[in-house]
Simulated scan of single mutants.
Amino acid sequence: MSNPLQGPEFYQNPYPAYAKLRSSASVQKVPAGSGGQYSYLVTGYAEARAAFTDPRLSKDTARFFADKPSTRNLHPAVSQTMLATDPPQHTRLRRLVTKAFTTGTVERLRPYIQQVTDDLVEAFLPDGRADLIADLAVPLPVTVICQMLGVPEKDRPAVRQWSNELFAAGQPGQIDAASHAIAGYMADLVEVKRRTPDSSLLTELVAARDGQDKLTEAELVSLAVLLLVAGHETTTNFIGNAALALLQHPASIARLREYPALLETALDELLRFDSPVGIATFRFSTETLTLGGTEIPPGVPVLIAPGAANRDPARFPDPDQLDLNRDAKGHLAFGHGIHRCLGAPLAKAEAEIALATLLARCDQLRLAVPAEDLQWRHTRLMRGLESLPATFSAPS
């Protein structure tokens, strides 16, 4: 049986595969790797939402792989992040991070995000064309999260490269090497912030405490890597996918230009329509459970697919249609439950500012190539474009 979650057609457009799988069962066994290995894939909305909060589905990858031989050499700072823990460890780590990642952070950052966006758009505006991935969707969130963490400007291209390589499907050697490079860099940067504290988020994490509890050195490095990678990868895909969706729906662009305030609520529909995360990070069953009428045995991987769940017609009628009037709250693009993306408000602010600035400053915005010629990243975890060439004119 071939794996329905890989191959050029799936990476280009996974939604027909998701729909076909969901039509037969909202939870089902799918092949994984070689040697008869398999996982359970969750494609239904109700089942995905339930799975995200089911305590019988563990994210403790160290526990799952403890007795399984592996040829991989992922750095622990990448393989054993906060995302790969269960309560009470996860609760403790998230509380410590949240103390540094306050709710007021995003509002305080909005002027900076706008300035970075203006500078990026100003740079390509005279050309009348741009790659909206390389020229906007990548540098905006990379610049913002690096600024927050205190990553020096000269190091940011390397950081972005390592992060990108962490999601190189089918390239385990490249992924492992990138994990050591980015973890080593962040360990050094943690030490720099300890010696010379500044106003960065990383300095706040070094000092973060909850009573007598504080982050260990390994936890500090792991959280730094997680915030760095998660702080821009998802947002890059969010901006790129949303821009493409609008470019393919000119009436939606016209409507947003007429009613700019609509964009804030339209972000949820854009996230639902083409989720920046196709399949959520690793979980496994700790005991036998039944989900969506399917019995899942203990000790097997369970893959929750927000990309599929967000197009479940049982939850979102006409799911393959982009409808900016739709109430898309409740989408699962950022996950759900205790592991819901901590940086979701920042991602939405960056995407809102990026899209609003594009629409305000670029008239006659169009795709520069046929949509079928666009290349998508070869990873089932992330759903994102390699490039997005567009043409436009500056407002007269």
Rank of each mutant, 00 (worst) to 15 (best):
E191C: 04
L166C: 08
T196N: 11
L189E: 03
T196D: 09
F167Q: 02
A169N: 08
Y185Q: 06
K193A: 06
Q174W: 01
G173F: 13
V192L: 10
D188G: 15
A178H: 05
D188L: 09
R195S: 13
L189T: 02
D176K: 11
D176Y: 04
E191N: 10
D176A: 10
I182L: 14
Q171F: 09
S200L: 10
A169Q: 12
V192Y: 01
A178L: 14
G173D: 13
G184P: 14
A178R: 04
Q171I: 02
Q174P: 06
Y185S: 03
G170D: 00
F167E: 03
I175Y: 08
R194H: 08
Y185C: 10
P172V: 13
V192S: 01
A183F: 09
K193S: 07
H180K: 04
S199L: 08
V190P: 14
R194N: 03
Q171D: 10
G184R: 13
G170C: 12
F167R: 07
D188A: 15
I175H: 04
P197A: 04
E191Q: 14
V190M: 09
R194W: 06
Q171K: 15
L189I: 06
G184F: 14
S200E: 02
S200G: 05
L189R: 02
L201W: 03
A187P: 07
A178F: 07
A169E: 14
E191Y: 01
L166F: 09
V190Q: 01
L166E: 06
A183E: 03
D176G: 10
P197H: 02
E191R: 15
P172I: 12
D188S: 15
A187M: 07
D198M: 09
V192E: 11
S199F: 08
K193C: 02
A177T: 13
S199A: 14
A169D: 12
A181Y: 08
S179F: 00
S200A: 08
T196K: 14
Q171W: 06
L189Y: 00
L201A: 01
D176R: 11
M186S: 00
A169I: 00
P197C: 07
M186H: 01
L189K: 01
T196Y: 01
H180R: 12
P172L: 13
Q174I: 13
V190W: 12
T196V: 12
K193L: 10
I182F: 09
Q171S: 13
S200F: 06
L201I: 11
P197Y: 10
S199M: 01
H180P: 12
A183N: 02
L201D: 00
S199V: 10
M186F: 14
H180L: 14
D188P: 05
A177P: 10
Q174H: 10
V190N: 05
R194F: 03
L189P: 09
R195V: 03
